Computed example of a mutant assay.
Amino acid sequence: MAESSFAEFDFTSADLARLRFAFSPVGEAVASLRTLQDPGRHTLHLPWIRTVRPRLAGLDLRLLFALVPLGPYIADFLTPPPTQPLPDVGAELERVAAADPDEAAREAARVPGAGTPPVREFLADPAAGVARAAAELRLYWETALEAFWPQIRGLFESEVLRRSRQLARDGAGAMFNDLHPNITWRAGRLRVRTHGWRRSGPLDGDGMILIPSVFHWPDTPVMAEPYQPSLVYPAPGVGTVWSQGVVPTADALSALIGRTRARILVALGEAATTSILARRLSMAPGAISQHLKVLCESGLVTRQRSGREVFYQRSGLGHSLCAAS
């Protein structure tokens, strides 16, 4: 078992003012490489693994696997912190391709197993290595993640909206202490349990990016200098993300309320709007609305208005029905 350590960050008022949420398609792609290497630790994602492995048979992933090994450290140039709340995978891949070769080489030299042939070749010509890694990451994204991104993105959008409101309503302390058992906040200091990486000190007004993740579950990776400080945490509701076309809805639940309504009910483990559900399930918003109306009238789903938006979530009866199916 990896050694548990802690990264600690002292926040000023300026840091709190620069606290923001974002998510990263490239970051998820990189994290998923570890899921493929150790599926036994990530049984939650076995439906995705079974689906994508045949598609990956023709790809050479040796360099990416070498730069993203199992263990406490990866080559961070592959996961630049997101710069905008609505990510663009093309722009993120361009940032990977534009990584500084010298910094990329320093990071590659620190990964476990840096003596493997793919990493030695990378270190012999870092500029060419960065270009190759970025090209392979783009192909991997297109093959393994692009088709599933709408449902992952829907989960992230719902989570970012919920956490942003929690931060505004309850403050940073309550929000941080609710993120994950590895994360604690006390008297202006954020403490994150890590695997073998230590850090302690101020943020110096740089703020922090909070990044929900599907594939990093159940870990809470941290990134700091020389990058924008970032904290990645598992998004609640990860278990529902494969409900579209990868994880079949339970037969008993489908027989009771219909397959489409069963999928919607399963997807509502976390509150979501009609548009978020439509993206998550690849359905028309109008069709989602019709099924939500029936589910609400049946007492399986509740609705709550927040400003101009209406959020839907499973009721207690809906949770019970999903658990029993």
Rank of each mutant, 00 (worst) to 15 (best):
G58D: 12
G207K: 05
Q290Y: 15
G90S: 11
S5E: 04
P285W: 04
F311I: 02
S320E: 13
W217D: 14
T194E: 09
A109I: 00
H45F: 15
R261I: 10
G318S: 06
L210K: 00
L78A: 00
A127H: 07
V192I: 09
P229K: 07
P221T: 08
I276L: 00
P47Q: 03
W242G: 08
V238Q: 09
A174E: 08
V241T: 10
L56H: 05
S325F: 10
L295Y: 07
S298E: 15
L277D: 03
P81R: 06
A174G: 00
E159Y: 01
A323P: 01
T302I: 03
V266R: 10
P47H: 02
V89K: 12
F148C: 07
H216W: 15
A271M: 06
P54Y: 05
V89D: 15
T249S: 10
T274K: 10
Y233N: 09
P54D: 03
R263F: 11
P101F: 11
R50V: 02
P117A: 05
A91S: 15
R34S: 11
S282Y: 02
A133Q: 05
A114N: 04
L179P: 10
P202L: 08
N177I: 02
R308K: 11
T274H: 04
E3F: 02
S282C: 05
A284L: 06
F122A: 13
